[in-house]
């Protein structure tokens, strides 16, 4: 750890904080720009009741004051205010509830994508231009170019409706299998391709030839020498992958009726539940920003050759 690295990390953290602040600000003002305010959809509301409602949610105060109150509550208490449509529930509680399922979904999907992707990528690289390599490449190309909602719908048709081997929905147990597969397939395909190309790159290096010349066995070369270095590009994909899983979960939870944070988000948009929309956007955005930060710093940590600007 030299000063340059520390300065870089410091800069990145600063940028991350700035980004989250921009997200909060954009979200706040964009939501306030909606004509008629959040109570527009409620029909036949008397002016007095409207005023009372606005006073209750602090909407009668000047805009800037509302903004600073909102910002202060988030920073000091992680408080995003109450939900407009789900009476008596705080936004943060709804998010925390949804997070439980979504986090499980996302983490399992991420790890299975990582595991399967690494193995498939290594196999493809070692059997380069053989049949198995070609099969893997064709399948992963297909997976990469298929939007997650299409993938999810097709899996739903095939496994839940036609073959009836897995339940079509549910937030626990077997019901989570299809959503996890849907979420994992794209990152898995991407990691496979990434691992394959970086493994091929590494296998062409001089130190691998030296190891071969010394008489090191095949598996030892792969696991002892090649694998570690070919992992480096995969680490850079760590951040984007989690971002993908977070946004992918929005549609996947919708398709499979999983009661996670993604579904809560989409429902809040259709219900025009503004505090919930804002809270979910901010929390998910912060999550993605933090994960990107971690993946960038990790990238530097594993490969000291990389110079950062």
């Amino acid at each position: 750890m030299n000063t340059k690295t520390l300065v870089y990390i410091f800069k990145r953290i600063l940028l991350a904080i700035l980004t989250v602040w921009v997200v909060i600000t954009v979200t706040f003002f964009v939501m306030r720009a909606v004509p008629g305010g959040p109570f527009m959809s409620e029909k036949a509301i008397t002016p007095a009741a409207q005023a009372a409602l606005e006073a209750k949610y602090g909407l009668d105060k000047p805009l800037m004051q509302q903004y600073f109150t909102y910002l202060r509550d988030i920073v000091t208490k992680m408080d995003f205010g109450p939900s407009l449509k789900q009476r008596g529930r705080d936004v943060i509680d709804i998010i925390a509830d949804g997070m439980k399922t979504s986090a499980k979904l996302g983490v399992i999907a991420a790890f299975s994508a990582l595991g399967a992707g690494l193995v498939l990528g290594a196999v493809a690289a070692l059997r380069r231009n053989k049949l198995i390599d070609k099969v893997i490449m064709v399948i992963t190309t297909a997976f990469v170019s298929m939007p997650s909602f299409i993938m999810g719908s097709l899996l739903l048709v095939i496994f839940a409706i036609k073959m009836r081997v897995l339940p079509a929905n549910g937030s626990t147990g077997a019901g989570l299998v299809l959503p996890i597969i849907t979420l994992a397939l794209y990152p898995m395909a991407y990691i496979t391709r990434l691992t394959r190309s970086s493994m091929l790159d590494v296998l062409g290096q001089d130190y691998i030839r030296t190891a071969r010349a010394k008489g090191v066995s095949g598996p030892r070369i792969i696991f002892g020498h090649a694998l570690k270095n070919s992992l480096i590009p995969v680490i850079t994909y760590f951040g984007p992958m989690l971002a993908y899983i977070v946004t992918g979960s929005l549609v996947v939870e919708q398709i499979f009726a999983v009661s996670g944070i993604g579904r809560a988000f989409i429902n809040s948009i259709t219900n025009r539940d503004y505090p919930l929309i804002m809270g979910t956007t901010i929390i998910l955005a912060a999550l993605i920003v933090i994960l990107n930060l971690v993946s960038d710093i990790l990238y530097k940590a594993v490969d000291p050759r990389i110079t950062l600007e």
Binding site: A16, V26, V34, A285, I288
Partner: peptide, 26 residues
């Protein structure tokens, strides 16, 4: 550019299009 680049694009897209739709219609 750095800040916009680090914004999670899909979330922002969803947020903006959900609001812009109602703002633009009239």
């Amino acid at each position: 550019v750095d800040i916009i680049y680090s914004l999670p694009d899909m979330l922002m897209v969803i947020l903006l299009s959900s609001v812009l739709g109602t703002v633009l219609t009239p």
